[in-house]
Amino acid sequence: MSETPPVQRRPAGELEASVLAALWAAEGPLSPAEVQRALGRRLARTTVTTILTRLHAKGAVSRSRAGRGYAYSPIQDSAGLTARRMRSELDKQDDRGTALARFVSDLPTEDEQLLRSILADTEEPTRGEIGR
Rank of each mutant, 00 (worst) to 15 (best):
T98A: 05
G69A: 04
V104F: 06
T98K: 06
L81Q: 14
D77V: 04
D94R: 00
D91N: 03
A99I: 06
G97N: 03
Y72L: 01
S117V: 03
Y70G: 11
Y72G: 03
R84K: 11
G67M: 10
R85P: 01
R63S: 05
G67H: 07
A60I: 12
S105E: 10
K92L: 02
R84Q: 15
G59H: 08
L115S: 04
R96T: 02
P108Q: 09
R65L: 06
R68V: 07
T82L: 15
M86R: 15
K58C: 12
R85V: 13
L55P: 00
E112R: 15
E110V: 00
R54K: 06
L90V: 01
T109I: 09
H56E: 08
D94C: 08
D77I: 10
Y72A: 01
D94K: 04
L100K: 05
Y70A: 10
A60G: 00
D106E: 14
A57G: 02
L81M: 08
L90G: 00
P108C: 11
A83R: 02
R63C: 13
S62P: 06
R96Y: 12
A79M: 03
S64G: 02
P74L: 10
A71Q: 10
R68F: 06
G67L: 01
E112H: 14
V61F: 08
I75S: 11
G59K: 13
A101K: 01
R68M: 11
A99V: 11
R102I: 14
I75H: 07
D111L: 01
S62K: 06
A60T: 09
M86C: 12
G97T: 10
S88Q: 14
D77K: 10
D111T: 10
D91I: 07
G80S: 03
D95E: 00
G97W: 12
A60C: 10
M86P: 08
